[in-house]
Amino acid sequence: MNKHLISAADLSKDDALLILDTAEELARVSERSIKKLPTLRGRTVVNLFFEDSTRTRISFEAAAKRLSADVINFSAKGSSVSKGESLKDTALTLEAMGADAVVMRHGASGAPYRLANWIRGSVVNAGDGTHEHPTQALLDAFTMRRHLKNLEGRKITIVGDVLHSRVARSNVLLLSTLGADVTLVAPPTLLPVSVGTWPCDVSYDLDAVLPKSDVIMMLRVQKERMNAAYFPSEREYSRRYGLDRDRFAKLPDDAIVMHPGPMNRGMEIAAEVADSARSTIVEQVANGVTTRMAVLYLLLGGEI
């Protein structure tokens, strides 16, 4: 495995399967009364978050603590960054504190890649701009594998705001590495120009794709990143691309519904679908801790 985890494309099939298998073993730790392993004692993990996040930051924090690492949380608000400190100076400060790994979320695509050139420790991308979010893809693949056993040849449909979604890109890359067939469904305005080069199919017709899907993953409409009109109205978006009760009924009986959160209930997903027994949305959060433990163990557990 590489020293850093910046893009899902960095992972070979063997790497990805090693992470998923490791996570499968670590899942049992979350079920026992002492949810802690001594493995990363003495290692320091810095959570460096320049963008708001609750579940990802808490998830990484829980993962590092369950492995007995020391955790330092750094959020841009209320730090020297708000006084104008540059990313590089922040990185050198972390380096001086002896960070063995830096978990980074940043609004600019490529920021973790820059950071990796400045510090000695491992860099884990926890979401950079509209680029990638590899640990989200890993926890999604882990969740799918628990329900479908093997991902080889499975039909995965990802619906919604692909343009602003780092989750979609990382998922497409990882799932194709694992041998799944991915179809993106979105209005043409919410697909990136480069989507033709991605290892997946594209469709504009959700109803045609639903009956053939083993997994349907709904993406959040990222209003905070939208500075133009990408669709006429929320109501129209919801009508054409939202997963409501009628569309849910068209899915095969054993298909699962996923969402990386946070959800806009009633927009991309109906509340009753989100709360149904075939929705894995809450499970994804629990699996996030387990998968991130596996990543931190494999990056920091051995010789570094």
């Binding site: 073993e25 049992r28 570094i304």
Partner: peptide
């Protein structure tokens, strides 16, 4: 009982794959 996560020589080699508990 897999003992990988409790080994005292973890840092002498790259991280190992886990066994089954």
């Amino acid at each position: 009982l897999d003992i990988t996560m409790y080994r005292d020589d973890l840092r002498t080699k790259p991280a190992r794959a886990l066994g089954h508990t």
